[in-house]
Structures are given as structure tokens and as C-alpha cells.
Amino acid sequence: MSVDESDAVDAFERLGLTSYEAKVFIALHRLGSGTARDVASVTDVPRSQVYSVAESLENRGLLEIQQSNPIRYRPVSIEEAQTTLKERFERERERAFEYVDAVKRESATEETQEDIWTVRSRDRVDDRVVDLLSQAEETIVFGTRLPSFVTDSIERTLEEQAAAGVSVLVLSRTDAVRERLGALEGVETATPPAHRDDDDRSGRIVLVDDESLLLSVVDDDLSETAIWSADSLFASVLIQLIEASDEVQPIAE
């Protein structure tokens, strides 16, 4: 394999050397030994930079400095350089993966953080509702008091899921919502009990397969904010509490 100096410099950089360090190291092997002037004459490393680069190479164990006037530099043998770089690579590898292993062990002893997400703005809540509804395999409960919170995408998704055999129940005290979604084949509607007459903050509720839920409220500026969770202990427990209450129980006709 033919390798030019540019390839060699790139390779040394991947081994942890800087571009200048690689160039000075290569130049000194070309020269055998030399002063800063000598090195600068065969590389594009400024003479003023050769001194600090040479000190760095010495600290890495790749260069020897002769305290003469002017100072001369001599590289260690290729074999010694290979051994030095290999040992350094191994040390850094062990240090890096030792930390990763420690983090992994530490995380295994911590409590799992449940995924509870907050979504703001009508458009983003619309998208999240459609996404959750689309993942249903067995049951869907969808509720809202606001006709404007039933988008065409939500209506279409409920219809598609009902056609696919998913049990779909729509809860709303608003006639327009029940009439619109109740017209979809396979979609059942019901009226939940009214706990108060001044409910102007509730937004939407979505329960999917006893595993995922979304609850939203209408903010003072009429925007919507929702929390949602899927496949988490939080979602499972909250769904059980909601289902055990009369919030999702239809009023007897």
C-alpha cells in the first residue's frame, strides 16, 4: 500500500498527535537529527513553532533533545515510537472504557426514570394524539368537550382504527362531538358525568391499550398544553385510576 506524507500525518493525528507534531516527527526521521531551522526548512511548520512542538514530542516520549547551541533534536527509533504510541493508546482505551463501565454499573443501581413528556401548542398536541391513536391495537378512549379539538386527522385515524378492529369509545358532553364521531362506523360514543358546570380548562383525554395516555388542558391564552406517557408505570397506574373513577363511565341512558 502506497502512503504519502499527507496520509501519514492523518494517521498520526488519529493516534493522538497534532498535525505539527506529526510533521516534525516525520521531518526528524528524514533528517536523522536537526535544529529548529533544519526542521522548518523541510516542513511547513514555522521555526517559532518547532520549539514548543519538539517539547511536546519529548513529553510524549517520541523525541530526544540535545542541549547544545543551537539545540538539536533527534527522534526515537521507529520501533520505540510504535511501542510508545501503542502503550499510550492502550492506556487511553482502558481509561475511557473503565469510565463507561462504571457509568453502566451505576445506572443499573438507579431507579428507572419514567418517561413523562409535556407538549405545548395545538398543532403539536394534535400530532401526538394522532400518533398515540395510530399505535392502538385493542382499545381507544378519546374524549374532548371542544369540537375544534377533533381534527380531520384525528377523525380519520379513529375511523381507520375502528375498521381495523380496535374498540373505539368517544366521550363528550358536547352533542356536536358525539354526533360527528358517532357517525363513524364502529365508533361508540357516550356522555361522561358532569362534575361541574364551569369546566373551561379541560382539553383532551386519550387512553390507548391501557398502556398510553394523554391529558391536556386549555391555557389562559386559549393554547393547549398536554402531558403524555407511553409504556411506563406512570401511564399504567394513572389509566387504572381514571378507569376506576367515573370519568370514563358513560351515563346510563
Rank of each mutant, 00 (worst) to 15 (best):
E224Y: 05
S48N: 08
R120E: 11
L85W: 12
E185V: 04
S19L: 13
V217R: 08
V50L: 01
R37I: 13
D44A: 08
L133K: 08
S41G: 14
E224A: 07
I154R: 09
Q240W: 12
I78Q: 05
P250K: 07
L169T: 04
D200F: 09
V170F: 00
A40C: 07
P192I: 00
E224P: 02
T174D: 11
A22S: 13
S223C: 04
G16C: 02
T151F: 15
A27P: 03
Y73Q: 04
G203W: 03
T109S: 14
E87V: 10
S172A: 01
A136Y: 06
T191D: 00
R47S: 01
R91F: 09
L62M: 03
N69C: 08
L207E: 09
T174Y: 11
S6C: 12
D197Q: 09
D221A: 11
R145I: 01
F25P: 11
G165Q: 03
E188D: 10
S134K: 15
R88E: 04
D123V: 10
S2E: 12
A194N: 05
S107G: 05
E243W: 02
S172W: 03
L62Y: 00
F142S: 07
E160F: 08
V76K: 02
T83S: 15
T189E: 00
R60T: 04
I65F: 06
K104R: 12
L215T: 11
L171K: 01
D44R: 13
D126L: 07
A36K: 09
L133Y: 07
Q249C: 08
I116C: 12
V50K: 07
G61I: 14
G61P: 07
D152M: 12
S56Q: 05
Q49W: 04
P193T: 08
F142K: 06
R204E: 00
S216Q: 00
L215R: 10
F97L: 10
R173I: 03
Y99M: 15
E13P: 11
L31G: 02
L15D: 09
V45R: 13
A194K: 13
A81I: 13
D126P: 00
A163F: 14
L132V: 15
S212T: 06
E98V: 05
T151Y: 14
F149C: 03
A8R: 08
P46E: 00
T112W: 08
L233T: 15
E80F: 11
L214R: 07
D198Y: 01
F97T: 14
Y99C: 09
Q113H: 10
A108E: 14
E79W: 05
D127M: 15
T84I: 04
Q49Y: 09
R156V: 11
V100C: 09
A230Q: 13
D152P: 12
I227Y: 00
S6N: 12
R128M: 10
V130C: 02
Q161S: 02
V42L: 08
D126C: 00
P192V: 03
P193D: 01
S134F: 11
E138M: 10
R196H: 07
T118K: 02
L63Q: 08
R47Q: 15
F149I: 01
D126Q: 05
D115I: 14
T18V: 07
T151L: 15
V248Y: 00
